[in-house]
Design a protein around this nucleic acid. Sequence first.
DNA 1: TGAGAGGCAATTGCATACACTTTTTGCCTT
DNA 2: AAGGCAAAAAGTGTATGCAATTGCCTCTCA
Lengths: 234, 234
Amino acid sequence: MSGKRSLIRSGTTVDQMVRAIGDRIVTGFLRPGEKLDEASLAARFDVSRTPVREALGRLSAMGLVERRPNRGATVAVVTQEHLASMFESMAELEAICARFSAERMTAGERRALEVEHQASACLVQLGAEEDYEYFNTEFHTRLYRGAHSKHIYELTVMTRSRLAPFRRAQFMLPGRLAKSWQEHDVIVTAIMRGDGVAAGQAAKDHVSIVSEASAIFAAVDPIKSGTDSIGVPS
Amino acid sequence: MSGKRSLIRSGTTVDQMVRAIGDRIVTGFLRPGEKLDEASLAARFDVSRTPVREALGRLSAMGLVERRPNRGATVAVVTQEHLASMFESMAELEAICARFSAERMTAGERRALEVEHQASACLVQLGAEEDYEYFNTEFHTRLYRGAHSKHIYELTVMTRSRLAPFRRAQFMLPGRLAKSWQEHDVIVTAIMRGDGVAAGQAAKDHVSIVSEASAIFAAVDPIKSGTDSIGVPS
DNA sequence: TGAGAGGCAATTGCATACACTTTTTGCCTT
DNA sequence: AAGGCAAAAAGTGTATGCAATTGCCTCTCA
């Protein structure tokens, strides 16, 4: 109907919708259980219902929204039980990745892992939460890749993204950085000496910490986000 | 355009399309790499392009088709490498399910598993391939459910469906039924005595058999179906 | 004769219109 | 007054039309 959305840069309209809606869910701007009305969303982002529908479909496949035939879509509501189940899966998947990494990583990958890990030590000293978070993500991604198994990688990344909304919880724990780094250290050490079982166990234990933190804060209200990133005109 | 599709039974049009197209891919009627033209598919099933598009989107999320923006959809082509990766993941996932089942199944679940398993023994005697296949699927589904972890269940079922096209291979192995049953027996026994580690290992080994069978036959051409009806009009 | 640029056809992406399902609301009956 | 039924309103599912992008074919020029 209107002119252009020329300002928006990448991907198709659907991609933008997926990001836009997904972000709002992940950041808690859209609350679990909230109804996602197609027409409203379409009007909100100044697109037609078609891309909105497809975006909702994709988000449904991601597990971020739930869809019932003829009854519309709602922000996925995760029960405490299901959340625990997802963290449990995450622990198992991370364990597998760590085990495989210990057995399969190339010399180069091992070196890179070690270097990055040691580099992040100073971030702990500085208490640079956000920077450490970035390295943390990198670290785990290296583990997933190091498993040299595309499908395991896919499953793991998928589960991680699904858990993203609940990851914020761990930020609230005092002394988290140091603890996290030490646990990483155990994993790295095990991988370096090629001990798959130890690496797997360490990785599993590591996830458990985050899991417990999230369990504590799961009931806490989602944060209120400020402004929209994909702005609607006027 | 036309009147009704009264013959088709359940769910929405999209669901039917997902099943219809998915079946054709799984059964090899549509070959890997084959182009899936929206208009042709729509005409083929006498629906509009809209549900076809949505179905392709879902199948893409399932990993059965690949989609590139503005370039249409093709039947997903899995490399030997990726296939191995998927079977490997499957083995790990089954191992987790078996381990958890050994630790968490209720008395009722254990009993049901045992009963069904014993009942399937006679199917082996009879060499009833198809009936056994049904029980086999049931058996594994029980294991997945027995893990009492919704997310693990989802991951496992997803991976299994993605591997479905390559499962046919195992039918070609002589003496498969007896071997399969014996392996099931090891798993059941371990679960019955609550030995998670043993159950996991047994399940992992069990999948390996199928994996190897598939690896052998993976290079073989998909089954030749009669004529391809969805071709472009001359 | 080969390579590159431009135009054309085909196909995808998005928008809008229509049909069917679900839910809500108001009226009627008990 | 309360409960149930019916009709309308809201919302999802599907169809179709139009715009935009892609890939191919051809025509031109070196």
